[in-house]
């Protein structure tokens, strides 16, 4: 039946007593994530996007407002613990989420916490290693892996727990281009296999790979649109300190020069074909 995550009128701050409400990390956010969606949440540094991520898997508890899974409010510690199996999270720094001194043992860590039997672990571990492309590195020590491999190991550790949702909190930002590409491809594959992907990032180019984009700025949701809609409105991204895709910049510059192009561009393809006709 999957996992539907709902935030309703959520406000959050670490120190709600000492900070005035307009500075809270998350302000009046209502969002809903259906099973199988591929969503990007974009915002610049300090926009509140990481706090939002931690609210979605119960690591943080809303200061105000409701957090529901499939319509059921999550309130107790037991609820939140059970949620960890369904909603996994990959963090930014690949180094600081690997617990065990070898690849297989690290994947086993989450399963051990869930009380999964040894036989089941032996069955699942090779499967997830294969899935993230780390087969053959079972006995490697984490510090001998590249950044991208470490991040894939972290993903394998989550996948072994068979989650419905995976949140990637800036998980590509510390990787080199190869590592980054690999993780993005993996996100796409996981999405196709039915897992909900929530990708938190400050990079517009990566964000536009998702089907749905949510822009967060100073703790508030500014936009929540399909990636096509948002692409057409992408000039707006600039005011929130985000990258505007280069195709949109070109489109705007040419229109300013009097080129007859559609007012809204939904994709780079459209721009290319319209340019071609107008030349």
């Amino acid at each position: 039946m999957g996992t539907e995550i709902t935030l309703k009128d959520v406000w959050f701050h670490y120190y709600p007593q000492t900070e005035s409400r307009e500075n809270w990390a998350v302000q009046n956010v209502s969002l809903d994530f259906q099973q199988g969606e591929y969503v990007s949440i974009i915002g610049s540094n300090g926009s509140g996007k990481s706090s939002l991520a931690c609210l979605l898997n119960g690591l943080f508890i809303p200061t105000e407002g409701a957090f529901c899974i499939n319509g059921q409010p999550i309130t107790t510690d037991q609820d939140r613990w059970e949620l960890k199996r369904r909603v996994g999270m990959i963090f930014q720094n690949p180094d600081n989420q690997i617990v065990a001194p070898s690849v297989v043992d690290d994947i086993a860590f989450g399963l051990e916490n869930l009380g999964v039997s040894r036989e089941e672990m032996k069955y699942r571990i090779p499967l997830v290693l294969e899935q993230v492309g780390l087969s053959g590195l079972e006995k490697k020590e984490p510090h001998h892996l590249s950044g991208g491999q470490k991040q894939r190991l972290a993903i394998a550790g989550i996948l072994a727990m068979q989650p419905d949702v995976i949140i990637f909190d800036e998980s590509t930002s510390m990787l080199d281009p190869d590592g980054r590409k690999h993780i993005l491809r993996l996100m796409d594959e996981l999405h196709k296999s039915g897992i909900t992907i929530i990708h938190i990032t400050h990079q517009a180019t990566e964000a536009f790979l998702a089907e749905r984009l949510i822009v967060i700025h100073q703790g508030r949701i500014m936009m929540d649109q399909s990636s096509k809609e948002l692409y057409a409105n992408a000039t707006l991204l600039d005011q929130w300190g985000l990258d505007v895709p280069i195709g949109i910049l070109l489109h705007q510059a040419l229109r300013d020069k009097g080129w007859k192009l559609s007012e809204k561009m939904e994709s780079e393809e459209q721009l290319v074909s319209e340019l071609w006709t107008s030349m």
């Binding site: 180019t205 280069i246 195709g247 070109l250 780079e268 290319v272 074909s273 340019l275 071609w276 030349m279």
Partner: peptide
Amino acid sequence: PSLTKLIDRLNERI
């Protein structure tokens, strides 16, 4: 670079 990528795409048609 991203601009070069865009030019490459344009050059598929132009």
